[in-house]
């Protein structure tokens, strides 16, 4: 007798479960959080704090805010940032001043921990919301963040 009782309760609880799935089946798109990713690329907007990759914004005069203080390089836990710098004589004051030559960023090694951006005293580097980082050759993941011929923005001191 318990055998048939078990079957009865099993089918009953299965139907209870299927009432939940059936409800979603009938209202398939209501409350769905699935995004049609490659199709919605034009409208897809990431959150402003999303950590995609580190970039260095330049203004219209090709000037950036990096003074070459190397605080980001020190803060980075795994050596993703390398700064090649030199001292150059400032024509206005006549003093020698640190100038960056290349701000090298290894995206392939970056763990997106945000420590470099917190460490930067002049907000020279920020997060970009780009997330499509796959490439065919990993050497292309090593990037030079400052644009060729760019200068330090006047008035930026660390």
């Amino acid at each position: 007798m318990t055998y048939f009782k078990d079957i009865y309760y099993a089918i009953k609880s299965l139907l209870t479960g299927m009432s939940v799935t059936g409800k979603y089946f009938l209202n398939a798109r209501k409350g769905a959080i699935t995004q049609q990713y490659p199709e919605n690329r034009a409208t897809l907007k990431m959150f402003e704090r999303f950590r995609g990759e580190v970039v260095m914004p330049h203004d219209e005069n090709n000037e950036h805010r990096c003074t070459g203080c190397q605080k980001c390089e020190l803060a980075c836990p795994n050596g993703s940032i390398e700064i090649i710098w030199d001292r150059q004589v400032d024509p206005e004051t006549g003093k020698k001043k640190k100038v960056i030559d290349q701000h090298i960023y290894h995206l392939g090694m970056c763990t997106m921990c945000s420590l470099c951006i917190e460490a930067c005293p002049t907000d020279a580097i920020v997060w970009a919301q780009n997330f499509e980082n796959s490439v065919y050759d990993r050497t292309t993941l090593t990037k030079v963040l400052n644009k060729p011929g760019s200068k330090l923005m006047p008035g930026v001191e660390d």
Binding site: M46, F47, R49, T111, M112, L115, E118, W127
Partner: peptide, 26 residues
């Protein structure tokens, strides 16, 4: 989504620093 908006990452958040939080909540 809540984590992504506030911390910037979905899984490996690294939102805490010794002494507090990396930035304020969104």
């Amino acid at each position: 989504d809540i984590f992504e908006e506030t911390c910037g990452a979905r899984l490996t958040m690294n939102y805490n620093i010794p002494g507090g939080l990396m930035f304020d909540i969104h």
